[in-house]
Write a protein that binds this DNA or RNA. Structure first.
Lengths: 229, 229
DNA sequence: CTAATTAGCGTACCTCATACGCTAAACTGA
DNA sequence: TCAGTTTAGCGTATGAGGTACGCTAATTAG
């Protein structure tokens, strides 16, 4: 599986030459699949539906993509093709903060990608490019080189876990603690019940939950770097 | 969907009474499904396979569970039924550290659960119980009450994102950067290439990546609390 | 005993992914 | 130009998986 994904992501591009020319291409298929997933959800990406959108037969897709699972892997990495969409910054902390929010924006724009990101996978060329660029930027503004990768991945991991409640708008949090509407639940979970109190400090803090955690993480990295001289 | 999950997770238990007594039960079905997922993976949990294991007809399961998707939601929350398996500690930092490692252990023991955790869902009674207990413990050892929930969830989010590479043993990291075996890739991604150098400091740091990030996050929380007096 | 109630489950249907093999369109070399 | 080669397009068939429907069976309430 790992090997398969590797060959898929890093393998040679299609070599031109003899034979019937292709109307379809891997890029076109992947792009259309991403469009479907963005608009209708990943579960609506079926080979049939995809073929209809592309105006081709279902089995034609298999000439360009080994199968459905592999298509999803390609879809994910395709999100990170192209240059890293991040502003320049003068301090590594700002670079990492932008990265953190950029990752959040990515998964808000493509909610289906979160499932892919947290599944077993290997790193593709798109993701590798972004991470490599990030490390370069960080070291350029003073972050010790040996910390670059681990800093990027740590923030990335946080972002991955913390972005879930951000997806789907602000009502996510409300739904998540829906059970607190029941008085019996508030008795059973007295500490969580604080959330249901009007004007609760915890509740307001939860509003900016994502940013709060990110800043704490950056604080922690800063303290670590200071402690290393 | 949110509403459906809510009713499913928090709804009344089966009321006994008239009618044919049930040999199956929601608990038995969910427990068996978890056993299958642990041993063979989530994709092997099919209604057919599950029914065979339980010695029942496929459609009998639908008397106890609305459908496959709902079953998965129940499977996830069932992991957090029972008491929180965490040692006592005297400092909030130790409590949170244990939580962080506990979450990691949970997902290592039940890798399929990571997909569920990062999908759209509402909080079930099991998870609510654990979080509530955590907040109680944290406040008992001095963490300000209004920080309890956000601290638990922040660590939880980090754990969720960072646990992925930990699943499946140590070879995960190797595979993840497999492409660096190719010299062309090392040229294309010079900053990542550092990983491929023998004796690279980055590489050794990545070994304990999970713990590193967790400690940074705890450092950050500590600094925040200090700054609040 | 009869009616009501609820569990078990066989059958049928629908959606999906995909293996197989044929056809079509190009290129290559004589 | 034509025969051979190569590769794309795709129709058909298969098998797996989820589940709606409705019948049957077991048990309790009156």
């Amino acid at each position: 599986m790992g090997t398969t994904d590797y060959d898929l992501l890093w393998g040679e591009a299609t070599r031109a030459g003899r034979g019937r020319p292709s109307g379809l291409s891997r890029e076109r298929i992947v792009a259309e699949a991403v469009a479907i997933a963005d608009a209708e959800g990943l579960h609506k990406v079926s080979m049939k539906h995809l073929a209809e959108r592309l105006g081709s037969g279902v089995m034609s897709l298999y000439r360009h993509v080994p199968g459905k699972d592999e298509l999803v892997v390609l879809m994910y990495d395709s999100l990170m093709t192209g240059p890293l969409p991040l502003p320049e910054a003068d301090h590594w902390r700002d670079v990492l903060r932008h990265w953190g929010f950029g990752v959040r924006d990515l998964f808000i724009a493509h909610p289906w990608a979160l499932t892919v990101a947290t599944s077993e996978r290997s790193m593709g060329p798109g993701e590798a490019g972004w991470v490599d660029t990030m490390i370069g930027r960080l070291t350029a503004v003073g972050l010790p080189a040996e910390l670059g990768l681990i800093a990027v991945l740590t923030v990335d991991c946080y972002a991955l876990g913390a972005v879930r409640p951000e997806i789907g708008g602000a009502e996510g949090d409300t739904d998540f603690f829906q059970f607190l509407a029941d008085p019996a639940a508030r008795t059973r979970f007295p500490n969580l019940a604080r959330l249901a109190e009007p004007g609760s400090a915890t509740k307001t803090a939860m509003k900016d939950h994502y940013e709060f955690g990110l800043e704490r993480l950056l604080d922690g990295l800063e303290r670590f770097i200071e402690s290393q001289h």
